[in-house]
C-alpha cells in the first residue's frame, strides 16, 4: 500500500500517499493552505477551520481530511478567502488582542494570517471580554486575553512533553484553557523549555524575561507572509 496517487488543488496536479491528509500532501507540493490549530508535529485538531478547503464541492478541514485519488480541492478562491478572513476577524474580536504591546507581535500566527489576508480592520464588533492572566510560574505565563483555543498547548504537553499540563474546561463562550493543578500554573510541572510553550501560535503562553528580543524588521512575518516557506518549495524548480 505504498503507491502514490494524484488529485488536484486549484487545478494543479498534486501527488498524495495513502494515510496523508490534504494539508500534508499540499505542503509537500509547495501549496500553502492557511492554518492555525494545525502544527506539523502534532496530531490534527480540526477546530479552527482556517484550513477549510472545498473537496469535491464540500467544505472540509484540510488538516484532518485524508487525501484521496482524484479528489478536486479548491483552496485559493474568493469564497474561501472570505470565509478565512471572517474566521480570523472573529478570533480578533472575541479576545483582547492588543498587538502594539504584545511580545509575540511580528511572530504571531494569528496576526500573520491577518496580514496575509490583507485585513486592515475587523468587520465584526469587538467583544472586549474579561479574561484572566496566570503569572504564578517563575518562567512562563498564560495570558488568556490572547488565547484562541487552538489546543496546540494541550496536544504538545500531552504528546511531546509527556506532561498533560493543559486542558480545556467549560463550553461555548465559557471555554478556556486550564492547567492540571489545584490552583495555578506554578503548581504544575510545566517548564520553560516545554514544547507546549513554543507551540502557542499567539502570545497566550510566553516565556518570561524575553520581551521584545527581536528588532522590528527582523521578526518572522515582517517581510514575507506566513506560508512563504511552504510556497518556496513550489517555486524551486529542483524540487
Amino acid at each position: 500500500m505504498n503507491h502514490t496517487f494524484t488529485f488536484t488543488i486549484d487545478g494543479v496536479e498534486v501527488r498524495g500517499r495513502p494515510g496523508q491528509t490534504i494539508m500534508q500532501a499540499a505542503d509537500e507540493a509547495g501549496i500553502y493552505i492557511p492554518r492555525l490549530c494545525a502544527h506539523k508535529e502534532l496530531v490534527p485538531h480540526g477546530s479552527c477551520r482556517v484550513c477549510t478547503v472545498f473537496v469535491n464541492g464540500r467544505p472540509q478541514s484540510a488538516c484532518t481530511q485524508p487525501a484521496a485519488p482524484g479528489i478536486i480541492v479548491e483552496n485559493e478562491t474568493e469564497a474561501l478567502l472570505a470565509i478565512r478572513r471572517s474566521l480570523i476577524d472573529m478570533l480578533f474580536v472575541e479576545g483582547n488582542h492588543f498587538c502594539p504591546f504584545c511580545e509575540k507581535s511580528g511572530n504571531c500566527e494569528l496576526q500573520a494570517l491577518a496580514y496575509r489576508f490583507g485585513i486592515t480592520a475587523p468587520q465584526h464588533p469587538y467583544l472586549f471580554p474579561k479574561r484572566d492572566l496566570d503569572a504564578s510560574h517563575p518562567d512562563i505565563f498564560i495570558d488568556r486575553n490572547r488565547c484562541i483555543l487552538c489546543g496546540r498547548c494541550v496536544r504538545a504537553s500531552r504528546d511531546l512533553d509527556g506532561k498533560n499540563v493543559f486542558q480545556f474546561v467549560g463550553r461555548g463562550p465559557g471555554k478556556r484553557i486550564a492547567v492540571n493543578a489545584k490552583a495555578a500554573l506554578a503548581d504544575t510541572d510545566a517548564a520553560r523549555t516545554d514544547r507546549a510553550v513554543s507551540a502557542c501560535p499567539v502570545g497566550a503562553i510566553l516565556r518570561k524575561r524575553v520581551g521584545y528580543a527581536i528588532p522590528i524588521g527582523q521578526r518572522m512575518y515582517d517581510a514575507a507572509p506566513i506560508g512563504s516557506d511552504i510556497e518556496a518549495v513550489r517555486a524551486d524548480p529542483h524540487q
Binding site: 488582542h97 492588543f98 498587538c99 502594539p100 504591546f101 486592515t120 480592520a121 469587538y126 472586549f128 471580554p129
Partner: peptide, 18 residues
Amino acid sequence: ISVGECAIAGGIPAMRNA
C-alpha cells in the same frame, strides 16, 4: 480614515473596557 490601532481597535485606552 481610521489611522492607527486606537482608532481601529480602541488600543491602549480600551484596556479599561473589561
